[in-house]
Structures are given as structure tokens and as C-alpha cells.
């Protein structure tokens, strides 16, 4: 099975790109592929824990936690982008990693495909 690296730069609220990317990752993992999921820029909002689910907005925490349990999915937030937005380590969802941008490039190195989904 293949390895997919997905990089997303859009915010969780205000765009449906991140919602699409997580659902794509979910579909890939269910097919037996592994997924590395990188969030940078405004997409680091995804890593924030204790987000309240409103029906007007995408709520992806539950999906992410289920994906993490599979062992075929790892999510990583750009640490600098997160810190710049006030999302500190203690604010990060359990299981969500934080690294610098070289992690994304290294993940892409060994990926069969990289899907880079740009931001606003």
C-alpha cells in the first residue's frame, strides 16, 4: 500500500479545504494506505484541542482521533505557525505532533504522492 503526504494551509473555519483534506485522508487510510498530514499557516488551527463542534462549521477532532488510532495516520503542525497564532504545546490535541517545516519535506521524500493544498 502507498504512502500519501498531505500538506494543508487553509484554516479550519472559513474554508472547506481542510475539511476535504481530512476526509480524503480518512478515505485513504480506510483503503489501507498510510497518510502523513501536515498543517501549516492558518491550518494549524486544526491542532487546537477542545474545539467546540457547531453545525455551522467543520468539526474534525473526532475524525482525527479515530484516524490516529489506526496507526496509519500521523498529523503534524508547523510549530512556528502554531506558536505565532497562540497555539502552544499545552493547547495541542493529544496525538498531534509539532515540528518544523523540514518534517513536511522529509515526509514528502518517502511519499508515493504529495498533495499540497494551498491556503487563502
Amino acid at each position: 500500500m502507498a504512502k500519501l503526504t498531505i500538506g494543508v494551509f487553509s484554516s479550519l473555519v472559513g474554508s472547506l479545504s481542510l475539511d476535504f483534506a481530512v476526509k480524503l485522508a480518512d478515505a485513504a487510510v480506510k483503503k489501507g494506505h498510510s497518510v502523513d498530514f501536515w498543517v501549516s499557516g492558518n491550518a494549524t488551527m486544526l491542532s487546537k484541542k477542545e474545539q467546540r463542534a457547531f453545525k455551522d462549521y467543520s468539526a474534525l477532532q473526532k475524525t482525527l482521533q479515530e484516524l490516529m488510532k489506526t496507526g496509519n495516520f500521523q498529523a503534524t503542525a508547523c510549530e512556528a505557525c502554531a506558536e505565532a497564532r497562540g497555539y502552544h504545546k499545552e493547547d495541542t490535541m493529544e496525538g498531534f505532533q509539532r515540528h518544523s517545516m523540514d518534517w513536511y519535506l522529509a515526509s514528502g521524500f518517502s511519499a508515493d504522492r504529495v498533495l499540497h493544498i494551498g491556503g487563502d
Binding site: 518544523s100 523540514d102 491556503g119
Partner: peptide, 21 residues
């Protein structure tokens, strides 16, 4: 937007990617 700044910072991050490879 932040897009071009992120392009440059991600490209520059290639200089330290070896630590993962």
C-alpha cells in the same frame, strides 16, 4: 496573504531536512 512567505520558509527548510533522512 502568508502564502509566498510560507513558500520561502518551506523551501529554506530543505536545508535541514537531512536530519530526518
Amino acid at each position: 496573504t502568508e502564502a509566498s512567505r510560507l513558500a520561502l520558509t518551506h523551501a529554506i527548510a530543505s536545508q535541514t531536512v537531512e536530519i530526518y533522512l
